[in-house]
Amino acid sequence: MSSELLPHTLEAHPVTGMYNGKFGVWLFLASEVMLFGALFSAYILLRTHGDFPSHKETLLDYRFGALNTFLLITSSVTMVMAWASFKLNDPGKGKMYLWITVILSCAFLFIKIKFEYLHKIHEGITPSYSTFYGIYYCMTGLHGLHILGGVVVMLYFLTVGAGLWNKNPHQFTNRIECTGLYWHFVDLVWIFLFPVFYLL
């Protein structure tokens, strides 16, 4: 209600060049950098500190990792295309791209859980197996939760929140842009997680 009246909800601030939501998301992402930074730091410390298996022994299947990397990269493209379509006043196309993004991310999660986590757990390799698997489950799990969060937000804009497009297409497009920023960041984190856990 009152938020619609606040300055710079829609229009960019002349100094920062961003509207409120976009600036807020970027600040949030800065804090996310520190969150994942701490975990990467923990990974490096554990790896250099003691008995830490190299990837030859860890037997994480890089093919699943590579496939998931492709899925996420593609979802990033469809995400940015969804925003571009809304920006070009083509909500039908925008929604289609958004749905594809949702499907790709669900596929990512499915592969991650079905073929990786559950498979490993079935083999008795739980987080307590070694520090490598501990940090692996922890970081990819946290990343997976971020994916899940993104999916929930996208589904919101495709269903309950879709009405905003008719009321205020500008604000709706802004919100898709913010979702996109978050989504690309999640993709970016995976770009680092993939080599760190599967290849090095």
Binding site: T16, G17, M18, W26, V33, M34, S41, H49
Partner: peptide, 22 residues
Amino acid sequence: KATLYWVLIISAFFFILLILIP
């Protein structure tokens, strides 16, 4: 614009500090 770059430079600096912990 520059504001965002500054925010990101600061976080990048502290990120590097974090990575230096090991």
